[in-house]
Design a protein around this nucleic acid. Structure first.
Lengths: 231, 231
DNA sequence: TCAAAAGTGTTTTACCTACACCCATGA
DNA sequence: TCATGGGTGTAGGTAAAACACTTTTGA
């Protein structure tokens, strides 16, 4: 790169929106900063990309440091590079989202200490975030809202075995609207991408619901067409 | 940025896919490189982002230098940052696409000399490109193919006044499939986003077609819903 | 037996699809 | 008058939307 010294001083970061679904609520993981600038503010997990690191690997590393999880599918959704988005100079940020299974045990724990103080926050209660992270969050949320209507991303957020009502709740939370129960079930089952299990919900004080699994094999077979949930 | 010297050496570029529609063919603008690496290869117009420049401005600048056009809407679609995508080191590239009106006169002329040798190439005849630009092109083309089905981006490529057949041709070229003439017209007109003019095509040796304009006012009013072209 | 959610069908409506002929124009 | 594309309508099928009651279970 010896011909191009004028271009040597740019900073990159990767920031991640990590979605989880727990007790009927869609949440994201935020960290509380204890460094300037924005000391004490909440922010998306993110960090600088190392010199010899691909962006994709940096995103995976940051997810791991924030949650202890590896090998989760992440999707890049936008790159933010306005002047003045970082008070100390021009920083370019590549933003990713990930969706993870939050089991009841809350076993998702940060590994590094830049992310100590990580908290799960309901997407309806996100405070004003550091830098332009509020804007990044809104853009990422909009992306998944769009995507869930034609791609089976919802299943990445649910436990392996789930009820149709849980699945519908998740769609409702992401789309931010009520769906008709009968139409939802009819349509979802018509796609033939779920496997009905011989098992039922346990520990509820009402009629136990059947459990289902997402069936990747069926999905691969049946999906040249796309899902569709509008109303 | 004085605390972060370890992160100071990253290179950014912006690359642009500039689409134009001319004589029934969808084309993009390519430049022929006369610098190493990839001297003599075709590549997407693109260049390094300056230190004090926002990414968005860099994209506008590169479009201007390549075509002489300003103020065209550009959309960022992906950021490429794999190791090894540039032989001289890690370069991160933010990719944009733009759609421009190619009038018959071909009055689109490069302004700077990094883009001397610019040529319009039919998307069906794109050669193997420098760096990973072939991949960037494929990804961008896929994006517009998707987007044209629910957003009125086609009109940016057509002359201000156009016939329904021209519009249909453009859809067919982008979607890479034949559409039914009657169904296309019925559906397109049903959206009520076109203004029928009192004018007809001139200089054709067959029945002259009515001309239409895209009507932004109507579009804004009628589009909570989305366009849809599948078959 | 009560509370809470599970589970289930039908009718109406809108949209998508397939399909073929006559019309207007300039050469 | 011929060649070329412009312009038009309908019927059948499929999917979406609206809508309410009975069943199961544990407390």
């Amino acid at each position: 790169m010896e011909n191009l010294p004028a271009h040597f001083d740019s900073l990159f970061t990767v920031d991640c929106i990590i979605f989880g679904f727990d007790e009927g609520e869609l949440k994201i993981l935020l960290i509380e900063r204890n460094e300037d600038p924005f000391r004490g503010w909440f922010a998306l997990p993110g960090y600088f990309v190392e010199k010899t690191e691909a962006i994709e690997s940096a995103a995976q590393r940051i997810l791991y440091e924030s949650t202890g999880l590896k090998g989760i599918y992440m999707e890049q959704f936008y790159t933010f590079g306005a002047l003045g988005r970082h008070p100390q100079g021009r920083v370019i940020t590549v933003a990713y989202y990930a969706m993870i299974r939050l089991t009841g045990q809350k076993d998702v724990k940060p590994v590094s200490d830049f992310a100590r103080q990580a908290v799960w926050v309901n997407v309806k209660d996100i405070p004003e975030l550091a830098f332009d992270h509020s804007r990044i969050f809104r853009k990422g949320f909009e992306k998944i809202r769009n995507k869930i209507s034609y791609q089976p991303i919802a299943f990445e957020l649910l436990p392996e075995k789930f009820t149709l009502t849980q699945l519908q709740n998740l769609y409702e939370v992401i789309l931010n609207k009520k769906l008709d129960k009968r139409n939802f079930r009819k349509k979802m089952l018509s796609y033939d991408i779920l496997k009905e299990l011989d098992e039922k919900q346990k520990g509820v004080s009402y009629r136990a619901a059947k459990l289902y699994k997402f069936d990747k094999r069926k999905f691969a077979k049946n999906f040249h067409k796309e899902l569709s949930f509008t109303k």
